[in-house]
């Protein structure tokens, strides 16, 4: 990994070589091993929005679950997770989640349907006057005072978003993980939700935005980590996503960028490898136009390139 520059603040979260695997019984007593995350590395600093972009099955939600310590009990985890320079042990995960590490979940399904939303938001507060803090946050997010007395089913999609962000806000967490906060929302609501996340970073918190929507990521992120088949294939600054993708380093990031309707709607055939049959070499090799025999023999390591990082033998 590359060392952070001296002027930059220390990462609030440092994930190195994270791998997650599951053993499953396939048929009878035959076991197979699924590897949804392989050698994944990301860091995130205070005041920064890091977008984690990838398709479904790329491991992005599992990354969030690994950080929060809520993986299923049969998961095998290797690699290191450090939070504020301390190892993120299971005990620390229990202590920190909900207080110093907060999750903005995907949908209304994460709210208690039988509890008024004001009470749910207040229950996430850890110090100070919860009622006052909840009123102030609702006012800030333009939620009328009577909304606190409503149940989740009475809220529209946009209001639900604001309630979910409110819970992260009131917790005072220094690391906020937002899991797919925007799909299927009208552009005005998308912009508003993303704006709230950007504001949280502006207050010195670190925000990890997990999304499959590269355009949403580009509007607020500082850096973008591109995931493929459970590994980080590239980490690039937002400015690299421009033109026909010539500044991007990895062939998958370029393909993702060029698939956007406004960038040519270019088709890339094939699909991510299945989790119990990962290729022995580079995980993108089976689909890669730049593939050579080197790529089938060994997995490329992450390396620094032009101010970002890439996992590819041929990237230049």
């Amino acid at each position: 990994m590359i060392a952070p520059e001296a002027s930059e603040p220390k990462p609030i979260l440092d994930v190195r070589d994270l791998s997650v695997s599951f053993e499953q019984y396939a048929r009878g007593l035959q076991k197979k091993t699924l590897r949804p995350i392989t050698s994944l590395s990301v860091t995130i600093r205070p005041g920064e929005v890091l977008a984690v972009v990838g398709s479904s099955g790329s491991g992005k939600s599992l990354l969030a679950h690994a950080i929060l310590g809520i993986l299923p009990s049969n998961a095998r985890v290797t690699g290191t997770l450090r939070h504020a320079n301390e190892n993120l042990t299971p005990e620390r995960q229990v202590a920190l989640r909900g207080s110093d590490i907060a999750l903005v979940p995907q949908s209304v399904g994460f709210l208690n349907p039988l509890m008024r939303v004001g009470a749910q938001v207040r229950s996430a507060a850890h110090n100070g006057n919860a009622a006052e803090a909840q009123r102030a946050i609702f006012a800030r997010y333009r939620l009328a005072p009577e909304v606190a007395g409503m149940y989740p089913f009475q809220l529209s999609g946009g209001m639900t978003r604001r309630v979910l962000v409110s819970t992260a806000m009131i917790s005072g967490a220094s690391l906020i993980i937002a899991d797919e906060p925007t799909p299927g929302m009208h552009s005005a609501v998308v912009e508003e939700t993303l704006g709230h996340l950007r504001e949280l970073a502006g207050e010195g918190r670190a925000v990890m935005l997990i999304t499959h929507d590269i355009e949403a990521a580009l509007t607020i992120a500082d850096r973008i980590a591109v995931l493929y088949a459970g590994t980080t294939v590239e980490i690039a600054s937002v400015a690299d996503f421009t033109g026909d993708g010539q500044s991007l380093r990895h062939p998958y990031s370029k393909a993702l960028w060029r698939a956007l309707p406004q960038n040519g709607f270019a088709v890339t055939p094939g699909a991510q490898p299945v989790l119990d049959e990962l290729p022995p070499g580079c995980l993108y090799e089976p689909r890669c136009p730049m593939s050579t025999p080197d790529c089938t023999g060994a997995r490329p390591e992450v390396r620094a390139l032009r101010g970002g990082v890439v996992r590819c033998f041929h990237a230049a």
Binding site: G54, S55, S56, P183, G184, H212, I214, A255, L256, W257, A259, L260, F265, A266, V267, T268, P269
Partner: peptide, 12 residues
């Protein structure tokens, strides 16, 4: 809407 850009182009 719920799919990544590459899968979206493949389907369309």
């Amino acid at each position: 809407t719920m799919l990544d850009a590459i899968t979206q182009t493949q389907i369309w």
